[in-house]
Design a protein around this nucleic acid. Structure first.
Lengths: 202, 202
DNA sequence: TGCAATTTTGCAGTGACTGCATAAATACTC
DNA sequence: GAGTATTTATGCAGTCACTGCAAAATTGCA
């Protein structure tokens, strides 16, 4: 019997279990943090609620932050692929807005999960940097992907990198704006922020 | 006898000793990191080289990163004051470039120290975020200062915050560009980056 | 000199994170 | 279905950043 070839299927039992464990850890992290606050939750508690050992936690997530945000290792590859897949003539800033927006509210997650994740992200100052703005690997990868798409030699100019950093900064600024009780809705503010970047700063 | 009133003097013995201890810790941190790399240096080692106890280290710096970068608590106040002190009509982006540049290479430090600090900053990927881009308090303070100077109500729009985030991102991008072996000189790239922000991103 | 305020230090602890070795589970082969 | 190879889970011991607390040392002041 040949293996199924549906686009996103889970063939082996092993693979399925791994996904389930990762999901359980992520959910446990979200629930606990939602309940007690980020600082009051230990990785041990997350592991326990997910039904795995404390050590296993770190087999799935490299840090407490990434467990809460549900950031996996191959998200990097997905993001660069997403950038590479944007239409040829699209302005980089538009590609970045879409791709970063997907990071903020992953389409893969169901409605409840997204809502909870968003609530936590906007409530915990410690998390925004972890999602956006504190990941050098991420910035490097996105910059490289953008340079590739634009057909420029990597590192030959700072342009792509500055664009990436500004875009990430804009998203982060909107999150922090929200955290500080600023006006407006998050999505709308992100639009405005990118318009501001496009129009040129004073 | 009234206390002296020179602008930046060190009157009491106590004050002098504190400054000296802070300086010793910062220098020790720079030397050790320059020698062995950031990850291989412990706060204990820094304290020992500076001639104080391990516990005292944390009386002076809130983290290992801040000891290496020499970031003190009142730097925040200095930065906001610097922003407030910029001339009225100056474009925010210009003020930010100058103030952030000062963060990068403090005029207070002597030539040797600045060189060493710069070398380490460009060699250690872990440090750039710590200096620029990972400090929520810093971003909040600078944003507030900018809003005050522009005379807008804090949090009424995202504009100031986005400008701050983009400016910080630009500096950080230039540092990372350098770290990745990119072209050009740091200072020149920073100029270019700010020009790019001013011209508007695509 | 003697008292008050500040600073230093030691101590004990928490918690994130890691390497390593072993046990358990799953995949694969005959 | 048994046996073997490969992954994955777990326990253990350890490192290190960072913290609170209370006692000791230092400095400022009257």
């Amino acid at each position: 019997m040949p293996k199924q070839s549906a686009p996103d299927e889970t063939c082996g039992l092993r693979e399925r279990k791994k996904r389930e464990t990762r999901r359980a850890l992520h959910h446990a992290a979200l629930d606990l943090v939602d309940d007690k606050g980020y600082a009051a939750v230990t990785t041990e508690a997350i592991a326990e609620r997910a039904g795995v050992s404390a050590r296993t936690f770190f087999n799935y997530f490299s840090s407490k932050e990434s467990a809460v945000l549900g950031v996996t290792g191959d998200q990097l590859a997905e993001t660069t692929a997403a950038i590479a897949g944007r239409p040829e003539g699209e302005p980089p800033l538009v590609s970045l807005r879409l791709v970063l927006g997907e990071l903020l509210a992953p389409a893969s997650a169901d409605r409840d999960l997204r809502a909870k994740r968003r609530r936590i992200l906007l409530a915990e100052p410690a998390l925004a940097p972890a999602l956006v703005g504190n990941n050098i690997l991420f910035e490097n990868a996105v910059t490289a992907a953008l340079e590739r798409r634009l057909g420029v030699r990597p590192g030959s100019s700072i342009e792509a990198r500055v664009t990436v950093a500004a875009a990430i900064g804009a998203v982060r600024a909107c999150i922090e704006h929200q955290q500080n009780g600023g006006s407006g809705r998050l999505e709308r503010n992100i639009e405005l922020a990118f318009e501001q970047l496009a129009a040129g700063l004073r």
